[in-house]
C-alpha cells in the first residue's frame, strides 16, 4: 500500500489501473463536492466529509481478520444492494460496542467496491481521537441535510441504524427484539432523496457483546449514551472486555429494497405514511430475524 503514497491526485488514475483497482476507485476525488477536479495544493486525501480513502484501506486491512476469521461474516442477497446510485441501508443494531456497523461497511466495500458512509449520532463528534478515526473511516453525523447530500447529490451508499442507541443498549434478555425505529426519519430522508431503502437483517451481533447490566445514572454523569456491564467485562476484565467481542458467527441477510412511490424533494411528507412505511420495514426485518434465528444451530458456528 506504501506505493500509493503519492500525495497528489494526478497519479491516482494510474494506480487505479494497476492492482488495487477496486479500492483505489472507491471514492471520487476529494474535491468532488467542491468542484475543481484536482487541487494541486492539497496534501491529504481527506474528502469533504472527513473520509480518507487511505485510512479506509488501512481500517479494512486491519478489519479483515475480524471479518473473515473472527466473525466469519456470511452474506445472503448481497446482489440486492444497488451497484450504482444512492441507497439508504438500514439494519438492526446490537452489542454493547456494536461490531455490526464496521462489518457491514467492510463487507460492502470489499465485495461490491462501493464506499459506504456510516451515519451515526453526533455524540461521536465530541470525543477526542475517536471522532477523528470515526470521521476518517467514513463516519458522518446523522443530520438530515448530510444524509440528503450523500444520497441525493452524491449518489452514495449510507448506512443507518434506525433504532439509534436503543439498539445496542438493550439488555441481553431483549436480544433480537427490534426497538422503535425512531420517528421514521430515515424513511422521510429516503423519500426526499428519491432513493430506495435497503434493509439488512443482522444475526450474531447481539451475542458478541451481551449486556448484563447498565447504569443510567452513571451514564448521565459521564455524558455517554449508555454505560453497560457486559459478559465480556465479567470474563475478560474492564479493559479487554470493552474491546474483545465473542467470536460469534455473523450472518447478514439483505432484504428486497423498498422504493417509495412519492415525489422526491418535498419539504415534508405525510407523517402517517412515513410511520407506516417505517413500521412495515421494521416488521419485515423482525420476521427475517426470527426466520434466521430459527435456522441457526449454534451461536458460535451459525
Amino acid at each position: 500500500m506504501a506505493r500509493n503514497d503519492n500525495r497528489g491526485r494526478p497519479d491516482r488514475a494510474l494506480t487505479a489501473g494497476l492492482e488495487d483497482e477496486r479500492t483505489a476507485a472507491l471514492v471520487a476525488l476529494p474535491s468532488s463536492a467542491g468542484g475543481t477536479d484536482s487541487d494541486a495544493a492539497r496534501r491529504s486525501d481527506v474528502d469533504a466529509w472527513g473520509r480518507s480513502e487511505r485510512a479506509r484501506r488501512l481500517i479494512r486491512r486491519l478489519g479483515a481478520p475480524a471479518y473473515e476469521r473472527w466473525f466469519r461474516v456470511e452474506w445472503d442477497g448481497l446482489g440486492k444492494i444497488p451497484r450504482a446510485g444512492g441507497a439508504l441501508i438500514v439494519a438492526n443494531h446490537a452489542g454493547a460496542i456494536p461490531a455490526d456497523a464496521p462489518m457491514i461497511m467492510h463487507g460492502i466495500e470489499e465485495e461490491l467496491g462501493r464506499p459506504v458512509y456510516g451515519l451515526a449520532d453526533n455524540w461521536f463528534r465530541t470525543l477526542p481521537v475517536a471522532s477523528t478515526i470515526w470521521s476518517r473511516g467514513g463516519g458522518v453525523a446523522a443530520h438530515p441535510d448530510n444524509a440528503h447530500r450523500l444520497l441525493h447529490d452524491e449518489g452514495q451508499l449510507a448506512l443507518v441504524f434506525p433504532e439509534g442507541t436503543k439498539g445496542p443498549s438493550k439488555h441481553v434478555s431483549d436480544r433480537y427484539r427490534l426497538r422503535r425505529f425512531g420517528r421514521g426519519g430515515f424513511v422521510e430522508t429516503a423519500m426526499r432523496a428519491g432513493v430506495p431503502v435497503v434493509p439488512i437483517a443482522v444475526v450474531g451481533a447481539e451475542e458478541s457483546m451481551p449486556i448484563l447490566y447498565k447504569s443510567s445514572s452513571l451514564a448521565r454523569l459521564l455524558h455517554v449514551p449508555y454505560l453497560p456491564v457486559t459478559l465480556n467485562h465479567v470474563l475478560f476484565g474492564p479493559v479487554l472486555g470493552t474491546v474483545l467481542h465473542f467470536p460469534v458467527k455473523f450472518r447478514f441477510r439483505v432484504l428486497d429494497p423498498v422504493r417509495f412511490e412519492v415525489e422526491p424533494g418535498l419539504g415534508r411528507y405525510p407523517r402517517g405514511r412515513v410511520i407506516d412505511e417505517a413500521e412495515a420495514i421494521r416488521q419485515r426485518l423482525q420476521e427475517n430475524l426470527y426466520e434466521m434465528l430459527a435456522a441457526r444451530r449454534s451461536i458460535l458456528f451459525g
Binding site: G34, G35, D39, R42, R43, V46
Partner: peptide
Amino acid sequence: GDGKLPVTEVASI
C-alpha cells in the same frame, strides 16, 4: 473556497 481541509493539513501546507 472550494473544498475543505483538516486542520492538520492546514498546518502542513
